[in-house]
Write a protein that binds this DNA or RNA. Structure first.
Lengths: 231, 231
DNA sequence: AATAAAACTAAAACGTGTTTTAGTTAGCTA
DNA sequence: TAGCTAACTAAAACACGTTTTAGTTTTATT
């Protein structure tokens, strides 16, 4: 690798690092490409030359932490259905440490129409779910008619959806945990073999008791930004 | 209602109608507030005075069709678990008639951070699901420990998520139907009483057979918009 | 009819993401 | 060392959503 490439990589790193800092200061909107360029001491055209778009840049930022994310997820002992629930807990713990960061990232990922970006994140997550499902099938906890791919996709879909709801501020983090566990619990209970099923349903009903009513959604009044004329 | 209000309502109607026309011409981006104002023969400030934001306007547009949507959904005979599956079919049929329109609308609804707008759409849908679940409980098809509110929210969440995936172009319409039915089928099978459960699982497995592999996601190459210098 | 209030307009402005242009720097190669 | 090329810069520009300003019309009230 020549020095040219090295310099480019260093600049990429610099921009990614700066972007991460900006993403962590809570307010999602406090992060424009112009201020990023200014803070990083770089032309505002450079991030576009190096990453292509704001979303691609954010993806690159999150990518650096993604390894940590995956190891945090897979570090858990892998036995029984509880591993799915622990997955949710671990994710929530991670989010709690850096809410602004993950919220910004999740929203950016979801806002993009670039398929490569989304699959870049969805595929590893899907792989993890698929492995967990396959293991459960082999342990005889899930009936063998089930295609790991299809089930994993459904579980991942639910997970992802509630994460997005949290990122948008529609639900709190504990709520996200409960609703995700509820969804995963249902999906698993449906295909669980008789032995595991009863216990799973018991857990689901227990979670259900902690859920707030759906009607109680946070609602703000219509944003009426017209201020009255000051006489 | 005085003439002032009448005029305002007429102007609202005019803008909504024009907006719907623009939304139907397929390309989501072919719809800027400036062109809308121009086509409607109205100042570009007027839609903001009357609706507040682009998203609110789109919500208003979709609102006019929402009644049709709900009647189309509820027109189906309400018996057995099949009603949930028919719900998905009816939605897909509606989407197929006007893909650009519903796709634009769904994306706009999802992009907004305005809670009132989202709940405006999620609440009636949630109500429908809740009613269906309650009915199923009373018919003894779903065990009575289940809280209709919680289950309905989960089913609606899955439904909504796959609709969004379709609106973003991540999956095809038949795929949306299959994956949604798969998800609903699982959720219902989990809580179905013994009698209904076997049949439901059979249907789920049948749907599963039609699902494409998760790995086969549409992927485009990274958007490399740099064109080469023309010598 | 006179006046106040509201609705609407045209036009400019702001802050975005993004692209383009033209010029400069820095590394590589002959 | 000389020259080529990729990388970078500064600055302007574009289109967008949105807001503001100031002026004009329309309606309701007295």
């Amino acid at each position: 690798m020549g020095k040219r490439d090295t310099n480019r990589d260093e600049k990429r790193q610099l921009i990614v690092t700066t972007a991460r800092k900006l993403m962590q200061v809570r307010e999602v909107s406090d992060f424009s490409m112009r201020t990023l360029a200014e803070v990083a001491g770089v032309s505002s055209a450079t991030p576009y030359a190096l990453f292509g778009s704001k979303q691609a840049l954010i993806a690159a930022v999150m990518d650096t932490d993604f390894a940590d994310f995956m190891t945090a997820l897979t570090a858990e002992p892998n036995q029984g259905f509880d591993v799915f629930f622990r997955l949710v807990d671990v994710t929530a713990e991670l989010f709690e440490k850096n809410p602004g960061y993950y919220s910004t990232g999740a929203q950016a990922i979801q806002a993009t129409t670039d398929q490569t970006l989304t699959s870049h994140f969805s595929l590893p997550r899907h792989g993890l779910f698929k492995d967990l499902v396959s293991d459960a099938i082999q342990r005889g906890e899930i009936c063998h008619q089930i295609n790991p791919d299809s089930l994993a996709l459904n579980l991942g879909h639910q997970f992802y959806g509630w994460i997005q709801a949290w990122a948008k501020g529609n639900i709190t983090l504990p709520d996200m945990v409960a609703r995700t566990k509820y969804g995963l619990g249902l999906g698993l209970a449906a295909v669980a073999t008789e032995a595991s099923r009863a216990q799973l349903l018991e857990q689901v009903v227990a979670i259900q008791a902690t859920l707030p009513e759906a009607g109680v959604l946070k609602t703000k009044p219509t944003p009426n930004k017209k201020q009255e004329a000051v006489s």
